[in-house]
Design a protein around this nucleic acid. Sequence first.
DNA 1: TACATACTGAACCTCATGGTTCAGTATACG
DNA 2: CGTATACTGAACCATGAGGTTCAGTATGTA
Lengths: 121, 121
Amino acid sequence: MVQYTNASLDASFAALSDVTRRGVLEQLGSAEASITDLAAKFNMSLTGMKKHVGVLEHAGLVTTEKIGRVRTCKIGPRRLEEEMAWIDKYRQLWAARFDELDKVVEEMKRKEKVNGRKKRK
Amino acid sequence: MVQYTNASLDASFAALSDVTRRGVLEQLGSAEASITDLAAKFNMSLTGMKKHVGVLEHAGLVTTEKIGRVRTCKIGPRRLEEEMAWIDKYRQLWAARFDELDKVVEEMKRKEKVNGRKKRK
DNA sequence: TACATACTGAACCTCATGGTTCAGTATACG
DNA sequence: CGTATACTGAACCATGAGGTTCAGTATGTA
């Protein structure tokens, strides 16, 4: 259950795939910031930064509020639970898969002495 | 420490941002598969699937080996440790940030009665 | 040898991304 | 009021993503 996650996983993993956006998230983790602040910190035009913030906001990772002239950005409602869960599930698959392989390898080890080892590097 | 992760984070989060590729990883978690197998399962041309596998391989999430005509794909060496670590760090920032806000809110609660609340909507 | 299978590469298409500049609009301030 | 600030939107550009088809090449198999 909790299977409806596909669309948001797409959006959030895509949001995380850009180093600037990960930087923005880290920045917002320590303090709120305006578009201007962020644009300056990441050496980018206001418009460019606005787009990044838009992507993060669309992924639910950032929320913004405009007060007067200033749009303030802060860390958003989503906490990457689903992303964490997906990765964790994957890691379990991985582990299971390699346990299996380990068994095969054990098997082969016992059976060898006949054959010489595969290159291990 | 472990700060050299940027490039691989870009590649792996990007790899994970596509539902087909996540599906391929899940599939390979339970069994190895050829390009043909995967293309059939995900209803896609061989060439298209080959590209997806290429992306996953480039991100270190899949390895492939061609034996005879058949290229067999299996789960690769990387276990998303860095991705997990990044997300976890982010979640801690998030938690810290909201602890802080909680304190501020507490503070405000105690100090009010004087001021009437800011609109909460 | 002949044919089918399995992949590979090039070329192409469409649409999204990451960025820019430029021209507004709205708000703050003296 | 006038000017500076802060954002916004449109337009543009180059590149890459996700997909296709088509024409190979290499390998199995009868």
